[in-house]
Amino acid sequence: MNGAEKIRVENLTKFFINGKTAVSALENVNLTVNDGEFLCVVGPSGCGKTTMLRILAGLEKPTSGRVHINAKAAGVPSTAVVFQGDSIFPWMRVVENVEYGLKLRGVPLKERRAVAMEHLKKMGLERFAYLYPYQLSGGMKQRVNVARAFACDPEILLMDEPFGALDEQNRLLLQQELLRIWEENCKTTVFITHSIDEALLLGDKILVMTAQPGKVKALLDVKIPRPRDIILIKSSPVFIELYKEIWDLLKEEVLKARNIK
């Protein structure tokens, strides 16, 4: 980790106009993410986590404030997103999905296919490269989704609850695979989740957000050494202590969110 600033969010505010009322999604969010850092964002549902990620990805415009992404290399995309839920294209074969980002950048077929196959191999999916998504299980589709983001080699990975819809066993497996792949090259990552477990397993830092409108409630360091082993971590004292700390922070917000409704 070299500590250079990669993402800087300054006074970020976002309103959604809904008829005559403005709904505030994010209010005055300030945040920096350093190069090679894995930031997990937790918060009660509806707190604007996804909105923040979409702004980082350039899919939404902030109402006020700004987002600065410190991109170095030319010709490499600054961000790639792993979306929540089923987002791989049903009309493309698995390998075509994985190489999609490269295809859009005009990488020749032979080259991009090789890169895609390599990423599929890492995910244990090379046997399924030429199948269509409808032939895959939910866990396999989500692996393709992750591989698609990694394959285009972005400077920053943005993940929006990528494992939220999976069953417990598949989620564990995928978290383990993500850790393994991520620890190879430590790409700057913003990972949204509602699971404290997941945030602690994966993150270097954890951002706790308040109930709507989303503000920064706390930013915690996760001082668990890497490489991490998912099963061993869960019983370590640091994990248990942090878990309690985050839950105390979140509990207040979840209760507040319930009272709003």
Binding site: A57, G58, P77, T79, V81, F83, G85, S87, F89, L104
Partner: peptide, 27 residues
């Protein structure tokens, strides 16, 4: 809309969006 978001997040040009998402999606 999620497929449109995917294309946008990968910075698809308009033509690329038509050929890789809009047309196959409408088939």
């Amino acid at each position: 809309p999620i497929y449109i978001d995917v294309a946008k997040s990968f910075k698809a040009s308009r033509i690329q969006f038509y050929t890789t998402v809009a047309f196959p999606g409408a088939l």
